[in-house]
Design a protein around this nucleic acid. Structure first.
Lengths: 222, 222
DNA sequence: TCTAGACTGGAACACTGTTCGTGTCAAGTA
DNA sequence: TACTTGACACGAACAGTGTTCCAGTCTAGA
């Protein structure tokens, strides 16, 4: 597990092959199949391993009706941070439900926050999924920008975005008026002190919060 | 392009190899490199092709301050439907920004709806991204359930979910009280006539709508 | 009729996940 | 002590991958 994470951290998830992992132990790929059924299972374990990291770093404050929003944001941000620390690893979450031991633990934590906030069961159950896919997608995208310029630095990323912005702004105004007009806000990592991730988080949270008052925000669900 | 889509529809995106595409023309893989720089470019074209399908099927009603929510829902649902029709294809969208000709067209449409709704530029610009990642993630997940039981049928999917639900409910209540309690709502495709996809859509839309009134919903963005 | 350039496609390279079968070694039993 | 069992090691092989090389073919323009 640790060897696999080491490879991902250093070379990205595309470099993670059975042979490469085995090499880390100075052995052949076939040896790994004594411990793991196939690569998919290794991925599954990897996903659960990183969920364990998230759980370990969670401070564990008691969720209440007052602090649930802040707590939820913190937990989602923490998960995002852990994912981003391991480059590509977020891609392993695609098409996988983290129902290993650590994954369940993390789900449990999240649900406890959502229910403390007074969300209806149906909404709370679904919110976990929604936030999960959001955070994974965002982690992947962030890594994408970062890997475009391996030497990194926030400045370089801004520069890359700037180039795309220029391209969008140079589009024919008659065919793409809105794209041209919004090229600026579309290609900024942060604006007015709030970065993209927090903005999306806020949007989802406001949507969730609208379901808190029993009966008030009912009606046009469809 | 059409050959590639044919393969994906029949065998899934994992079966899409250069050799397999070439075989569709009765030739060798090397021949494709006269038309396409590499597989990544083929994927890029594929992504733009499917965006073209979405644009072609859009009815094109004029967005207004009254109908923007309904219109936005329709457009997101349409995109999801087109993606799901092509199995795995949604995976090709991961880590890619659809800025081809058709992609830009689709973005333009979406932005026009968002701005008609009176969303601030910054929110509108970001909402496109948010909805895009949401719909792609949801399409992938739906396909995952579907491919677990290739003979398909909504009943089989429900059965598969039922098994996981049973497993979750059998978990130790003292360690996972909330998971056990919410196992039911977590593992239902639809409840009370609203399916998962529409529910998530509604959550995001409410969150976005809360930014419409200039000044009203300001304040604690962070 | 000749030539330039677009296209073809077999062969090869360096990889991938996975399986087979032989080999090693340590613990448990007679 | 001798023997058996079972867990693990791992080179070799198989069928597949994306991509490049390069000797060919074919066709449009001069």
């Amino acid at each position: 597990m640790e060897a696999a994470v080491r490879i991902i951290d250093a070379e990205g998830i595309d470099a993670l092959s059975m042979r490469r992992v085995a090499q880390e132990f100075g052995t052949g790929a076939a040896s790994l199949y004594a411990y793991v059924a196939n690569k998919d299972e290794l991925m599954e374990l990897l996903v659960d391993w990183v969920m364990g990291q998230v759980v370990d770093r969670w401070h564990g404050a008691e969720p209440t009706a007052e602090n649930w929003r802040e707590l939820l944001k913190e937990s989602v941000r923490l998960s995002r941070d852990v994912l981003v620390e391991h480059r590509d690893l977020a891609k392993a979450f695609i098409g996988r439900i983290p129902f290993g031991q650590n994954g369940l633990h993390a789900v449990e934590l999240q649900l406890s926050i959502l229910r403390a906030g007074g969300l209806p069961d149906r909404i709370a159950a679904y919110a976990g999924d929604l936030l999960g896919t959001y955070l994974v997608a965002e982690a992947i995208e962030e890594n994408m920008w970062r890997s475009r310029f391996p030497e990194a630095g926030a400045a370089e990323i801004g520069e890359a975005m700037g180039e795309i912005r220029d391209y969008l702004q140079a589009l024919p105004v008659d065919r793409f008026p809105n794209v041209v007009a919004l090229a600026g806000p579309m290609m900024y990592q942060e604006a007015e002190g709030i970065d993209r991730f927090d903005l999306g988080l806020e949007v989802i949270l406001r949507g969730l919060a609208s379901f808190v008052d029993t009966g008030a925000a009912q009606g046009d669900v469809r």
